[in-house]
């Protein structure tokens, strides 16, 4: 076994992940014979031990209590978010009705104030003055009818 291969296997070896017995034996033999790889092996062990000394955190029961509160708040928000579009849809359906009525009433009032009867304007828009007379009863329609026939 050469040094390159031995060094690649050292990580697996110190992690107890080198299951192949023949490879383990070859690595042992190489380590006995090679000072450089021995140094590498000891430095890896030292690093591993140092990391194991790293401080650990231990959470208190406050963590769970905070989590429960966070979950409650999130669920309340979800309900709110789910409810809002439904309310929005309902509003979109209902708001136009009074809005259209209000706009129509406003239009009528403004038109009346300007001396215009918008309903009549609309109804008689395509009729001539005579037609309007007939419809209003000012002109005798039988006269007009005779005129057209003969």
């Amino acid at each position: 076994m050469n040094c390159y291969k031995a060094k690649r296997l050292l990580s697996r070896y110190i992690d107890n992940e080198l299951k192949d017995e023949s490879l383990r034996l070859k690595l042992h033999e190489h380590l006995k014979a090679c000072e450089d790889c021995q140094r590498e092996f000891h430095s890896l062990i030292a690093v591993k031990r140092l990391i194991a000394q790293k401080e650990k955190i231990k959470l208190t029961k406050d963590f769970l209590e905070t989590l429960k509160l966070n979950i409650q708040n999130e669920q309340a928000q979800i309900i709110k978010i789910r409810w809002l579009p439904e309310a929005g849809n309902l509003a979109r359906k209902l708001i136009p009705v009074p809005a259209i009525i209000a706009a129509f009433m406003f239009f009528m009032v403004v038109a009346r104030l300007n001396g215009v009867n918008p309903v009549e304007e609309y109804l008689y828009a395509d009729l001539s003055d005579e037609d309007i007379g007939i419809l209003s009863g000012y002109v005798d329609s039988s006269e007009l009818l005779t005129e057209v026939i003969f």
Binding site: D15, S43, L44, A46, V47, L50, I51
Partner: peptide
């Protein structure tokens, strides 16, 4: 990755160990 991580750590942690 573990091999490389340890190689990187080695140089940084040599002063301590």
């Amino acid at each position: 990755r573990l091999f490389r991580a340890r190689e990187m750590l080695k140089s940084k942690l040599i002063p301590i160990y």
